[in-house]
Structures are given as C-alpha cells and as structure tokens.
Design a binder for these strands. Sequence first.
DNA 1: TTGAAAGCGCTAACAG
DNA 2: CTGTTAGCGCTTTCAA
Lengths: 335, 335
Amino acid sequence: MKVTIEVVAKKAGVSKTTVSRILNGNYEHTTEETKNRILSVIQELDYHPNALAKGLKSSRTNVIGIVLSDLKNPYWSAVLEGVEDMCRIFGYNLMICNSDEDPKLEEQYIKEFQMRRVDGIVINPTVKNMELYRKMGEEDFPMVVINRKVPGISTNQVVIDNIKGASMAIDHLLNNNRKNIAAFVYQNSNISPWEERVEGYRKTMLRHGYRQEDLKILKIDRQSGEVQEFIQRFIGENPNIDAIFSTNNMLTLEVLKALKQLYRNVPEDIAIVGYDETVWSEHLNPPLTTVMQPAKEMGKIATKLLNDRIHAKPPYKMETVILEPRLMIRKSCGS
Amino acid sequence: MKVTIEVVAKKAGVSKTTVSRILNGNYEHTTEETKNRILSVIQELDYHPNALAKGLKSSRTNVIGIVLSDLKNPYWSAVLEGVEDMCRIFGYNLMICNSDEDPKLEEQYIKEFQMRRVDGIVINPTVKNMELYRKMGEEDFPMVVINRKVPGISTNQVVIDNIKGASMAIDHLLNNNRKNIAAFVYQNSNISPWEERVEGYRKTMLRHGYRQEDLKILKIDRQSGEVQEFIQRFIGENPNIDAIFSTNNMLTLEVLKALKQLYRNVPEDIAIVGYDETVWSEHLNPPLTTVMQPAKEMGKIATKLLNDRIHAKPPYKMETVILEPRLMIRKSCGS
DNA sequence: TTGAAAGCGCTAACAG
DNA sequence: CTGTTAGCGCTTTCAA
C-alpha cells in the first residue's frame, strides 16, 4: 500500500494542504500542535514525497544536469567533484551524461535533460551545436558553459586561461636556458583549449624574439594508433630540441614513454612541461613540472553561477569567469 | 506558450490518447496517415514530452541512480564509464552521487533517489547501513551492489575476487625469488576488498610454507597525514624486506615516493606489486606490475543486471557475479 | 489557522 | 481505428 500525502493527511486528521505546507517548511499557518502531529505521522508512516508529482506541479525539480566528455581524464573527475560538492550544498541532485565529443549525442542528452525538466545544466560543449546553444540562450534555459569558450552566446561561462598557462610554461623553460622548445598537441579539430595552448606557445616564443620559422609544433592524430611513432619520428628528425611543452596530460605520458625508448634523459637532454596536474605528476621520475588548472574550482564556480541563475529574475546578467592556471615546478625542467 | 500533448492533439485534430500512442511507438492502432500527421505536428511544434508527467503516470522514469564514493580514483571512473555505456544502450539517464564513505550521506542519497522514483540503483555500499540495505531488499527495490560484498541480503551483486588478485600478486613475487614480502593497506575499518587482499596475502604466504609470524602487514592510517612517516619507519625497521604488496593504487604512489626518499631501488632492493591498473602504471619508472581489476566491466555487468531486474517479474532470482582480476606483469618485480 | 478544488501533463482502461 | 475519462501525487489559489 502506497503512502501518499493523502494518506498522511487522513491519518493526521488534516487536509493535504496542511501537510504540504509542513513538508515545505511553511510553518507559519499552522499550530505547533498540528505541525507536530503531522510530523510524527510522517515519521510513523515513513512517508517520502513523490518528487515527480512535486516537480510536475511546481516546475522545479532540484535536479541539474552535467554533460561531460571524458571522465577517465582526472581533469574531468576533478570538475565533477567540484560540481558535486556544490550540489550537496545547494540541495540539487545531479544527472550526468557523456557526449563523447559527439555533437549528435550532445544534442540528444540536452534534449533528454530538458524533458526531465532539470533546473539547469552545466556543459562542456563540443562547440559543434552552435544553433542549439544559441537557441537555449534565447529561450533563457539556465545553463553554464565550462572549459571551452562558445562565442556569441548569452550564457554564463567559466573557462581557464590557456594562453596564460602556456605562456607560464614556456617562460619557465626559457628561463631555464632551453633554446629549442617544441609544442605537442593532439590534433582534434577545434578543441579550443588545446589550440589556445599552442597559441600561447607561439605568442610567448615570438615575444622572446623567436621567429615564426623557429617554432616547432607537432600535431598528433590521436585516433591513428601511431602516437608513439609520430612522437619518436619527430624527435628523431629534430635532434636539437631541448624541451617539450605537452598540451595534454595523456599525451605527456606518451611523450615520456617515447623518450625512454629513445634513451633521452629528462631533464638533461630534454626538459618537459605537461599540461594538467594529476595525482601521478609528482611520482614520475623525474617529477613532472605541470600547468595546474583549477578544475575543481571551475566545477564549483559553474554550479554556483548556475544556482544563481536559476534563482534570478530577468533581466539576467551573464558572466564569463576566467580562472588562472598555476605552474607546479618540479624536476622535469631541470630547475 | 507551452506545448503539451494537448496542443499537439488539437493541432493534429486527434485526441491526446492517439498522440500518446504514437509517442510511445505504439503504432498498431493508428493509420499510417494520422501517424504521419501527428509526427509532423510534433516536429513542427518542436514538442518534447514532459518526463515528469510521464513518470508520474506510468511509474517508470528510465532513470537509474549510482552511488559511489571516490570519483577521483580512476578505478571508479572506469566503473562509471561502464555504467554509462550500458545506460546509453538501455536508454536510461543516470543520476550520480557521492557518499564519501559516510553512511548518513549514503542513506540520504538513497532516499532522494527513491523520492525521484528512479527505476533502480547501483551502489558501492559503505556497508554501514545494513538495516537499510536489508529493507530495500525486502521491499524489492531494484538494486545492485558492486565492489563490496554485503552479506545476507537479497540483491544482485557484482564483485571482484580480491583473494585471487592478492594471491596472483604474491605468487608472482615468490616465483621471482622474493623471500620477505610485506603487505601494505590503508586501515579503513571494514572496506572488505582491502581486507580480502590482505587475507589473500596471508593465505598465499601460509600456503607457501610461511608461518603466521613471518607475515608483515602494515596498516596505515590514511587520515593521520603521516602516511610517508609510517611507510618510511616501517621500511627502516624491517630492512630485510625485499617486496611490497600494496593494496591500493594511491597507496602505491606513496610507497614509491618513500622508497625514493630512502634511496631504495625498485626492483633491485625491493619489488613492488600494486593493486589497480591505471593509466600511469606503465609510465612509472620502473613500470609497475599491477593487479588489474575489470572495473569497466563491473559497471557494465551491474547495469545489465539492474536492467534485467527492472524488467523482471517476481519471483526474482538474485545473482552474485564474481569477476577475475588479471596480473599485469612489468619491471617493478624484476621479471 | 485550515481546507476544497482545480490543475500540472501524461497514460491507459474502456467504450465506441 | 480513435476518443472519453479518470486519475498519478503534489501545490496553490481562494474561500471559510
């Protein structure tokens, strides 16, 4: 036998209305005594309100959705952790899905979230559904975009300054007397953070007097299954390279593997700076210098912004928060 | 103006019933022609059914929940990945939460999931809410327990054989002529997998003719903030140890750090086997031998089982699936 | 201080 | 083949 608000009301000898008020902490219309009676009946019956009915009626679910693309990457786990922390604080439950960088999937999941009437979503966009993002903005659907900038769109955004991160890395390498710095990146069409890191490399090198022709950028096809070959060939063909700026934490592991195969020592022969701090960075041999991104903080801020937006009244003011990376200096640069 | 099933029905000149049938792929009662008319109206109006209303009425939400405890650990990311994959296949959306090993939180989240009428949950239990688990079993709430065994409870369970994993590790070390093997574990009350790994160590050692007094088990208080001190002191006090079996991947990183500090070489002075394969295992120096757990597979199987259970009719037959770990042999054991 | 009643948007007998 | 109708369990005006 299902226990609904009606059953509670009957047993407490009051109306559903009164029970509903109590449930929602709206005590001002009710005697202390009736309140207590209702409360004890609720306890006794182990009553739990049906959130679907509540949501249907009130058009607020206290659920937010997050669409991510690669949970195996500790960067995203950290973001998720931040989101979770804030959800706990604000009282949201969290729906999660994985776009896998597929715009079709992304669209489908967003639609599903909307059908479930989530109060808002946090999204790391594939940046390939511009029409959809624009529409969501127009329809005032609460959303905050993280990690990748989506240009010309009316939402809150939280991103991390990749140009800055790259520039810190390159500056550090140059300060440690490295002269021939190469940048490695996975060529994945338009993942803006990666592009920005390369751009940061470029700018910083030029600023230090290098010419465009001096730059060495290796774009690696991740899918090809020949990542090692790519890297090793490149290093072979560019024997005078004395430092590598790796724009992705998984890629960094590949670089290390390649260097070991080629018997190149880090940092004596080649210095390395990796992007993204991870649990293992400091345990590698030598410990790895990395650009640390405040991932968890990004998740927290995004959720905070989303919550603000959900409770705000129009006109909404949209904000773009830019977070600063930090350089974790270790032995892999020889300093 | 909100577009509901009613609006669609009006515009298509049919009743809500007919639209509902079409929405749910129930075409057999409808002419091809009306069907198409409805479909095109749906498209035209960009109609999306309200999942709350649907769920309220049909008491099926197509949402499942998962309660985890530490997403930062790649083991859990892998599990989640498996769960997600199957959710995509079965058409579920996923709610996620983090118990953080806190029984109170665990209970709260389970309640919240139930209030949201999720169709079922996958849970890595804290194993400290026995009463609750039992009750859920009794009430036939669809649930599958993963990772940790919960004794005497009527649900599906998917676990990984930890005794076996430990035994593989120890056998391998003994086969490589290690004579003095210690086992390291975080002392976290009753995390059954960790205990089982220690137990596997014990059993295997005894089976190989060692006596109880020969065993060296270091229990480390994770919270104390003195993990390094613990490990280094232990190694100092037990200079004849020539191998360490580490029962947790984060702990393994600590062990490596300690050994480096003490100038002990791996594997020459001390061999190591770690528990849990990770992306970085093969990139450490030397590459780490690990016990690989089929985490993603566990997530997949659990979700499969949950889906079966959700669609099953009583009487339900509960299953406990035990997965086999695999030894990833690398240089850290000197073989 | 309390309750009656009207829905939120959908599904599913049942009837035609 | 299609529609009428009665809810699912809750919130919220409005009246008492």
